[in-house]
Design a binder for these strands. Structure first.
Lengths: 221, 221
DNA sequence: AACTCAAAAATTATCTATAATTTGACGCCA
DNA sequence: TGGCGTCAAATTATAGATAATTTTTGAGTT
């Protein structure tokens, strides 16, 4: 996955991003440049550059002279990301719709089926992300797609924090409705469904470190 | 402006961002780390970090082992930024509206007047940006506001590229309509006007390096 | 003149070393 | 016991040195 063409800084940032998203590193915990450098067998110079990338993606927060920590999040940020995704994915879909082919819609349907069959969060998330990317990519707006990608990374993080292990299979009616509307050339209906779809925030009781249960929230679309 | 608390990398990235936005550095031109380091009397380590920040803002493009260049742009990207701004600023305004006070709206009106009186692009742009920031900031959505800020930086760049020097004063009816709707508590009307407003793309003939004239485009709201 | 191709120069990426700052522990004293 | 200052250890930030890569130059060839 980490192509050898990538610079070390990019490799490190991808690996750390993965750990942050999967929850392997706790929100709020410090990222110490020397420790990371040692783990990756490099000096801290590329590590610092990796930190800047994580910062830009909103996965880490850096305070001058006080180091970098994994970004924390709360229900407010989950809502914020959901609404930004709704606004931007609807925009992307409107532009992508005219360029969607039967082949792309077919692949999107496969992704939906894969998601429905998933027994764990990680594979569901991957299938879901594939679906969204497939129907939005043809909008041909690189800046928009890059921003949406960052939002998806944030979404995945919220999701894994709430559904660390358990996952119930369920058939995604929204995805099917979107595909059906797109096949009929009804872009506005597809966009409206998509906008609602990504704002659906799931709720789930999780156990905290202190043994108590509280509700966790995540975007489930 | 460049606070001494900032790390050197931040100071450099702010200064370079300013130059790129103002057009002092040509799109496509290379940013050489040693030269920048020498100019700022530092080593190239903070320079490289500054480059990563510019990359994240979409102001520079980095190719591994081949250096960093100032990002180019075309009409397509101007449209893209305009549409993203429309989608996100409308979202921000909907959330900000309930928190807008008479004082904020007063300041926004002052900013509009300052813009109307501006005889040069730079001061118009600053007043315009102030207006937008004032009415959107109370949405209290930091990620959304940060994204909008980056889009404003891109907008400013397009604007300065097209209207390098000449500027005609004009009264901004849209801003007044938005303020009036907000004062009446009519959020949806204000949002609709704002959405149209930031998608208005101005067109202006400019002289190219080769002496010919072509049309330049920029967001004028 | 145009076209290799190799060597030199310039530039990027990384490593090692040092300075500056923050964190944390310890002991002191009210 | 609890707050406070001081010093040591850890950590961040920058500088200087080196390795690896790309770009440029230019001689030699067709």
């Amino acid at each position: 996955m980490a192509s050898t063409e990538d610079t070390i800084a990019v490799r490190i940032s991808k690996e750390l991003a993965d750990r942050i998203i999967s929850g392997a590193i706790e929100p709020g915990s410090r990222l110490r440049q020397d420790h990371v450098a040692e783990e990756f067998n490099t000096s801290h110079v590329p590590v610092r550059e990796a930190f800047r990338r994580l910062e830009a993606q909103g996965l880490a927060i850096s305070e001058p002279r006080r180091g970098v920590r994994v970004a924390s999040f709360d229900l407010g940020e989950v809502r914020e990301v959901a609404e930004m995704r709704a606004a931007l994915e609807v925009l992307a879909l409107r532009h992508a719709a005219p360029h969607l082919t039967a082949s792309i819609l077919g692949q999107a349907e496969e992704a939906t089926k894969a998601g429905d069959k998933s027994h764990d969060v990680r594979s569901w998330e991957e299938a879901n992300r594939t679906f969204h990317r497939l129907i939005l990519a043809p909008c041909n707006m690189p800046r928009l797609l890059a921003t949406i990608d960052d939002l998806h990374a944030a979404s995945a993080r919220f999701l894994f924090a709430a559904w660390r292990s358990e996952w119930e299979t369920r058939t995604d009616q929204d995805h099917r409705a979107i595909l059906s509307a797109l096949r009929q050339g009804n872009t506005e209906s597809a966009a409206a469904t998509l906008g609602r779809h990504v704002q659906w925030i799931g709720q789930k009781p999780v156990k905290t470190a202190s043994g108590r249960t509280r509700d966790a929230f995540a975007i489930v679309g």
